[in-house]
Design a protein around this nucleic acid. Structure first.
Lengths: 73, 73
DNA sequence: TTTTGTAATGACTTAAATGTCATTATTTAT
DNA sequence: ATAAATAATGACATTTAAGTCATTACAAAA
């Protein structure tokens, strides 16, 4: 059924991607919070099963669409 | 901040996409449940803010990756 | 070393996704 | 029209994402 391993891996990859995009824009976690209201710290540790809304909001904030975000998965 | 409108629209689009893929494979909601353990009914109504894990599991089940799923958004 | 800025984590609350099952539409076929 | 299959919804429990704030860890700079 839902492979826990594959899932953890996916969340890990998402977290790394988000961190990369944040750092590319030279933003702190606090910046992200001030601008979006999202606490990204726990997300970037890869332990949170983020919702589509949250991911969409972050992608929007980082100026990328969901499709290209998952392209580099 | 998080535009509720845009969000509802996104979730609506996701739900429609999922339904399209399910029907293309001629699967019932019960089939999906039996194979994945996921109750897709509420998701297909577009009122649920699905998690990445759930979406990933469904995409996997429908033989498509997340990137191409969001391409046709 | 000692600040200082930033990130990670703990504790807790709230809201909501997910799971489960029964019941009520709704669609499709006979 | 009736029956059968499928989907939607209601009600409820469980789990967990997300919000909030304080504290600890860590890194970079002074």
């Amino acid at each position: 059924m839902g492979s826990r391993l594959k899932n953890e891996k996916l969340l890990q990859q998402i977290s790394i991607q988000l961190k990369r995009h944040r750092e590319k824009k030279e933003l702190t976690q606090e910046d992200v919070y001030n601008d979006t209201g999202i606490h990204i710290s726990r997300i970037e540790t890869g332990k949170v099963n983020i919702t589509v809304s949250t991911l969409a909001a972050l992608c929007d904030y980082f100026d990328l669409n969901l499709s290209e975000f998952f392209e580099k998965l």
